[in-house]
Write a protein that binds this DNA or RNA. Structure first.
Lengths: 240, 240
DNA sequence: TTTGTCGTTATTGGATCCAAAGTTAAGTTC
DNA sequence: GAACTTAACTTTGGATCCAATAACGACAAA
């Protein structure tokens, strides 16, 4: 291979390599348990080994990769228990953030921001059903709500801790929803989530720190496990 | 510089670079807030830039370093709030581990292991005062107790989460104790910690999961803040 | 004196090279 | 035919090289 191509910055930066690798892994290429070789990834992504090695360190720290003995890495396997634990971890950490926030009191800015999230959620769900794009829209609102709480606690330590635990494969639940039945079901799920947001917001405003923690913890934990719940219709019996 | 020395494996591996850097930072060389340059560290440690760059990624992920703008890293500054938050994070995570462990029940092996920690602690404190080496010995016992609980939960996710948050500068409290007064004080602190261990152990054995969580959370949190407490003498008034 | 522009320097990111250690496989001996 | 030895291959870790860019400073113009 000629050396002329050496400095081409067309290739993605290191952060992109991390993102690409994360995606490749979550997509099932590089399946869990398999060894993963620097050179292979490098060729696959069209970069040299160096950025891949850097990415490996990051992903190891994140927990997505783990050392295979003394030599190389392999993709980490996650059991069902692992996923539940990860949910609980997120639950307690976001609960902690909520408690601190309730204790220190909401600033004007944060309160407005959260109120906007609540209002946006209400609007989205007001019409009683979901269109396809609404799911994405909700994701944004939800993300904003959580991020705002987590990053308003006066210390980034908690936010970092949550960020470092956000790698687990439970974000992949964003499957594409087509049929009306699934959209109906999704509507009720989001309705529940919205109500939880509102209770959390209320507790935050009132400075009810213990309640805020408890509610947030449960909300963060249950979010991905809604499917296991018994499911009623919030708008009366429209599903017969 | 000649190229002959290139492959000398005498130099420490990457993991050692991470450890060395962590130490250098916690010792105050590379003070918080300062920019930290790859080349400088590399020369300081007598290695090339490559392992330093890898270490930087690891330490960034750990939170000890953070990107300075778009270019380079700087040593992260920790406020008092940050440290308190980190303690709380550890508290909720270890509390979570304790709850899960209580729920799933102790295996014979784990129970024996924990009982040994309790017994070792009792022995160490039985004579009513501390010798200098006893502090180190307690650290080992304490570490074993916590590690056992955290790593016995059936999933390494929680253990990882805790490990990833173990970087903050509150481990540096292991200052050298010389005078008798400080040893006395330390004794009472360890006495309190030992009692907390025993309550946690009791809750774990009895399967009292909520209690186990609460106790462990408080224990992990208060550990480093004992100095702020009012302090009585557990053995009667020997300090007058 | 201040500000804007241009050139230099410092430092990072990516690519490649070399050595060491592990891994596989072939070949030889009992 | 099984087991041990050894040689070739694979893959990783560290060092060095090159390109690009941000930081810095000098110089000129307003």
């Amino acid at each position: 291979m000629s050396r002329i191509t050496q400095g081409k910055r067309v290739s993605k930066g290191n952060t992109s390599v991390v993102a690409s690798l994360r995606k490749l892994i979550s997509e099932g290429r590089y399946p869990p348990g398999d060894r993963i070789a620097e050179l292979h990834v490098a060729e696959h992504l069209g970069v040299s080994r160096t950025p891949v090695r850097l990415a490996f360190r990051t992903l190891e720290q994140e927990g997505l990769l783990q050392r295979a003995g003394k030599r190389g890495y392999r993709v980490r396997e996650f059991t069902e228990t692992d996923v539940l634990c990860a949910l609980e971890v997120r639950g307690v950490l976001e609960g902690l953030a909520a408690r601190r926030l309730a204790e220190q009191g909401l600033t004007e800015e944060v309160e407005v921001h959260l109120a906007q999230c609540i209002e946006d959620g209400r609007e989205l769900l007001a019409k009683g059903y979901l269109d396809k794009d609404d799911v994405t829209r909700w994701s944004e609102i939800n993300e904003t709500f959580h991020t705002t709480i987590v990053e308003s606690t006066g210390s980034l330590v908690i936010a970092d801790a949550i960020g470092r635990n956000n790698h687990l494969p439970f974000a992949s639940a964003d499957s594409i929803i087509i049929d009306t039945d699934a959209l109906d079901r999704e509507y009720r799920k989001l309705y529940f989530a919205q109500m939880q947001h509102q209770t959390v917001f209320q507790a935050l405003r009132l400075g009810e720190s213990a309640r805020a923690e408890m509610l947030m913890r449960e909300h963060a934990y249950i979010g991905m496990r809604y499917g296991e719940l018994l499911d009623l219709d919030p708008n009366g019996a429209s599903t017969g």
